[in-house]
Design a protein around this nucleic acid. Structure first.
Lengths: 242, 242
DNA sequence: TACGATTATATGTCTAGACATATAAGTCAA
DNA sequence: TTGACTTATATGTCTAGACATATAATCGTA
């Protein structure tokens, strides 16, 4: 909701330019790598001075949405600059970054009309189709995490035809769907028999639970629950603040 | 290290102005709430046009380091705008925000020359004095978290005379010491007998463990371990991303 | 073909003005 | 004392220029 509506009030010109460009990036109309119009082109389009256009583009650059290169132009950045906590969104990247071999195993995949429970979990009211996915990640052939995910197909129709038997859904989504907001809920449980079996740990051993919800604008994209062995896994988040 | 050294190269004027102000804020010379010089004063001091000063201040505002108010001036922001994960840094604020009554109990406080273990925990080589603090937080008289903290007195000398019997050290630090970086490590354990006793939970119940290290520039400020009952507590982190 | 020098161009920074606008502070009346 | 009105002022936005600088593209040469 934060940058939702500058509704009704008259935004200044440079803010309008910035919002116009931001919108095209977030909707995917201008994908990562796309060259956005030169300053002089925007000057012509909006009928203003170059400083006004420059201010809009500078703010987008400061927000890491675009990258500016002298003589070449300004380009939409790849969404790889998330906060540290979100980097763990891509478990494969996390494991390979540690120099360990990544293993992935699809346990189950079901395409179905959303049940009441599905709608509650995704936080949506309208019915629609969803994909439910269960899978397991491993590092050096040791179970690393089990994943239980729901994807809202009305937000991400292309997920219906994606091949999740080879690519983990988290990686697929990260590379195909731009997100704008995510919420993590972290808690701890002790392993029940099924969890213990899946993670190859003892019943009663501590587990870290991460529930993540991801939105694009106001639309829910996916809800996922990740279970990690709590004593062997550490979740590291590093911040810069003021 | 990120914005550490623009060493040797010649930074542009607006960057120098921005860096000058940033430095005074981070060193605490200009504390939260302090009014920084008006644009026209900075124009006089640096001998440049107002637009140059304005660019420096606008970027500081976009980075949430200062707040600008028409007619009033520009003010150093309180460090309350951290990422969601860091908001839980202040347990008191977290509890009162939920409308529950906050309780605090100092269990122990020791001022000592740093032992080898202390130095390892803080990640410093040089010896010096430290304060070790143990305390417990509660919500509506139910144990909420136990805290085990080490403060490096060479970084925060004023902590030696702070009264931690009434104010929790986390709140005190948050309000007295500006930080620039923090690292969280989150894991899960099962409660041993001492932990179970302190949190009033069963032995073997799941606990969430948060280890946090905080730095100002390259100096370690504090290291803290927080233990939460894992089934009743949830750590929520919300982000906006690209 | 490969490499080095030249050129064109988009961004980076800066100026000396201008008018708009929100609001702190002061003024005056009820 | 309180509330309404006025005023002064700091920031917000914008312009039409300028020169600096990094670099993609081109051209020329070995």
């Amino acid at each position: 909701m934060s940058l939702a509506t500058d509704s009704a009030d008259k935004p200044t010109l440079y803010k309008r330019i910035r919002a116009d460009i931001e919108k095209r990036i977030l909707t995917g109309e201008w994908p990562p790598g796309h060259r956005i119009p030169f300053e002089h082109e925007l000057v012509a389009r909006y009928g203003c001075s170059r400083m006004t256009v420059n201010k809009a583009l500078s703010e987008l650059a400061q927000a890491d949405l675009i990258e500016r290169r002298r003589r070449a132009g300004s380009f939409v950045r790849r969404p790889q600059h998330q906060s540290a906590v979100l980097k763990i969104a891509d478990i494969r990247a996390e494991i390979t970054a540690l120099g360990r071999s990544y293993g992935y195993e699809l346990i189950g995949r079901k395409l179905r009309a959303a049940t009441a429970a599905d709608r509650a979990r995704l936080g949506v009211k309208k019915a629609g189709k969803v994909i439910a996915i269960a899978c397991r990640h491993s590092a050096d052939n040791v179970p690393f995490a089990v994943e239980d995910r729901l994807i809202d197909l009305s937000s991400v129709p292309s997920a219906a035809t994606a091949d999740f038997s080879r690519e983990p859904p988290g990686s697929w989504l990260l590379h195909h769907v731009p997100w704008t907001e995510a919420e993590h809920t972290i808690s701890a449980i002790v392993a029940d028999d099924r969890t213990a079996e899946a993670l190859d740990i003892a019943i009663g051993a501590p587990c870290l639970v991460i529930d993540r919800y991801t939105w694009r604008s106001a639309r829910t994209i996916t809800a996922v629950r990740l279970l990690y062995p709590g004593d062997s896994h550490r979740l590291v988040a590093r911040f810069k603040g003021g």
